[in-house]
Design a protein around this nucleic acid. Structure first.
Lengths: 241, 241
DNA sequence: GCAATAGTGTCTTTTAGACAGTATCTT
DNA sequence: AAGATACTGTCTAAAAGACACTATTGC
């Protein structure tokens, strides 16, 4: 396919710049943000394009090390955060001649949902990163490197759709959480108010939560029942939330 | 990024074999198949891997000609069928060291839905192709080249999901069709019986069809009202079909 | 007791499923 | 008229939305 010489591999056409990017969603504590956010980094290499601009974490896929694009994205996230993501779903591939000034490029984009607990240490280390709230992205108040604005648009559309019929967004919550917390997050993701009584009924019916007995939380009001998910795998609501 | 010499481009690592594949769905007339099918071709180049095996139509992405992976896939389909697809949606990217014997490869897969009318001429020309019925694929009765079995599995999952909440599958039908035809196709895609009265109510409520006045069809029974879609864009059912 | 949030009960409206009943064609 | 498929009407059950009402905490 490609001729191998002592100088490297020779190909007839300009090879594709084959990269991967990650959209990392998380839900910080109220003092940091009141809604889900996406992690972006400031580009620190002045020899690379979009130096000093904010961008999704990403990198080249290494065909000698990475078994496939998913493994490459997992590696990139591990390099950035220090641990592998527990959930990783392919979002879409973005490619073309125009999106990277260095040439024809392709980026296989994945997204992950992480509870803040796993990120607290990373954030405390003052990384060269920023947390973009969903509402700011929705209002097009951000301007990222490459076509990453477009990527975020697609990613938010996807997670919003998942918030209609899946318990996947619960991966943003801490291991133990209340129905009210879950309800608030779903409202933020869907960007609309959700009837609480119906929400409880549906959550109850899907039967994917276990009461964590005796544990409560809250301030000067009635404490809430705390739950945890029965399984790690997301469950599906048969008729939407 | 890549050094250019008179012999070609030199890169340090083996470049990615960057390809695209297409999953083409269609609904043949009853005498050919009683359910939706996918088009596969017999691989005809004996110098290429999987010679003589059945595979999805696909090919290399040409970074000198193709603006992006979507355009590349459109070109591949145009080369195979003689016309560009009216609808093309990205399915997923499949990549890795193991899927192509020639080396580390990546394939951005798209899918399209075409009415049989557009394919009738192509099929009449006896192409080196085969129509795989959905049920045969579901029962794993096919064995395609590369990882194309896996690709088909994902594609069918996707179109089945879309058949729950979208009018997209109507793109498989002729321009004018009856509710019964639509109903039958949705049953085939979802692989389950669907209550006809409820189906009619939901189709009616979504209000995406126009009566084609005075036109009927059928044999020795009551003729059915014929409809066509009001818009080309697929509409969404708010609570599933 | 009051404020505040958690959670329940219940009434109304909407929707889904079942299925009988009617309509309209060919033979 | 028989047979076949298209369509409608209607009853019942399930679910959604609205919202008042009760519960449990700190102060």
């Amino acid at each position: 396919m490609f001729k191998k010489t002592d100088k490297g591999f020779i190909s007839k056409y300009q090879p594709v710049i084959y990269t991967t990017d990650a959209v990392i969603f998380t839900l910080p504590p109220p003092e940091i943000a009141s809604e889900p956010v996406v992690i972006v980094y400031r580009r620190a290499d002045e020899k690379e394009p979009y130096f000093d601009r904010w961008a999704l974490p990403g990198g080249m896929v290494r065909t000698n090390d990475d078994a496939n694009d998913r493994a490459a994205c997992e590696r990139v996230i591990r390099e950035k955060l220090g641990f592998p993501p527990s959930y990783l779903e392919q979002l879409q591939t973005f490619s073309g001649a125009g999106r990277d000034p260095r040439g024809w490029s392709s980026s296989v984009v994945y997204f992950t949902l992480l509870p803040w607990k796993e990120l607290a240490n990373w954030w405390a280390s003052k990384p060269n990163a920023q947390l973009l709230p969903l509402s700011a992205i929705r209002k097009s108040m951000v301007s990222l490197a490459f076509d990453h604005d477009e990527i975020l648009r697609v990613a938010i559309e996807r997670i919003q759709a998942k918030a209609h019929y899946s318990t996947l967004p619960c991966m943003l919550l801490p291991e133990r959480f209340t129905v009210a917390q879950m309800h608030g997050m779903y409202e933020a993701l869907q960007g609309r108010p959700i009837n609480m009584a119906a929400f409880r009924r549906k959550v109850e019916k899907l039967d994917f939560l276990t009461k964590v007995s005796g544990v409560f939380e809250g301030g000067a009001q009635r404490p809430a029942q705390v739950y945890r998910m029965k399984h790690r795998e997301p469950a599906l609501f048969d008729r939407g939330l």
